[in-house]
Amino acid sequence: MGKLTNKLQEAVKKLSYSTTVDQLKRKGIQKVNVVGLDRIVALIEAAVHRTLKARMAGLETAEMCGEIAGQTRDEFLRLLHSNESLEKAHQEMHGEKSALEEQVALLRTELQTVQGKLASRESQLAREAKVQAAEEDQHLHEEIHGLLAQRGMDDERTRGLVQEVFGLVRGHLEVERTRVTEARRKEYQTEVELLNRRLAKLNGALAATEDQLQRVMKAKTLHPGLPSVYKKVQGLDSHDSLFAKKTELMESIFEANLRLRREIA
């Protein structure tokens, strides 16, 4: 019985939860009665012993008593174990949920980094190309102007010619630049494709993890329920001091409800 006592104490501790005076007040409870664990354990043990003694009066053999006491103990431990299993499953689900939440946070960070990296590389490329083109245009313009000046063609009349030549050469240059940009893009293409593939993979992993998280969250709310203390329909206790009166009352309530159903029908 020592083991049972300890288990009982543990069970009462596990099944209880903490509350505050404010929470109790909100529930309309103004006064609570306090019963010590030892007292509960002692009462249950006494009740089990008395019931066994009363039920076995006149029939008892040491073996039968032992068998019933053993069965009672086993049933109690089984119930306790089932409660522990539930608790364990609940805790595991909590752990899984936390792990998945961490994973989602990590993936999100990684995704943001990759996206940032891609965007920054593309904007850097565009910036560099722009600066380079401006420098080249300036240089070309100066060379054409210098060349014509050497030939003594730097007066007002030749200024329009310089612009025309510059425009013509620049047009050809733009075509070449596009080719060069394409070539540079191709150069980076492998890297960009790699990053895009990584991005798609991360997106997929994120979606899958979020799905899993949703499932766990949903499963968490699907509490298997708290078992009733009754396995069968009870009815009035024949030892109740008001048995006869209560029986009449139960019949009256039932008849009133039956009448009500008929009226509704």
């Binding site: 069968k232 329909v233 009870q234 009815g235 009035l236 209560k246 139960m250 309530i253 039932f254 039956l258």
Partner: peptide, 14 residues
Amino acid sequence: KIAHDMPEDFWEKL
């Protein structure tokens, strides 16, 4: 308490 004390056949009939 009423629910507890109500006999099984009454529940069944309803």
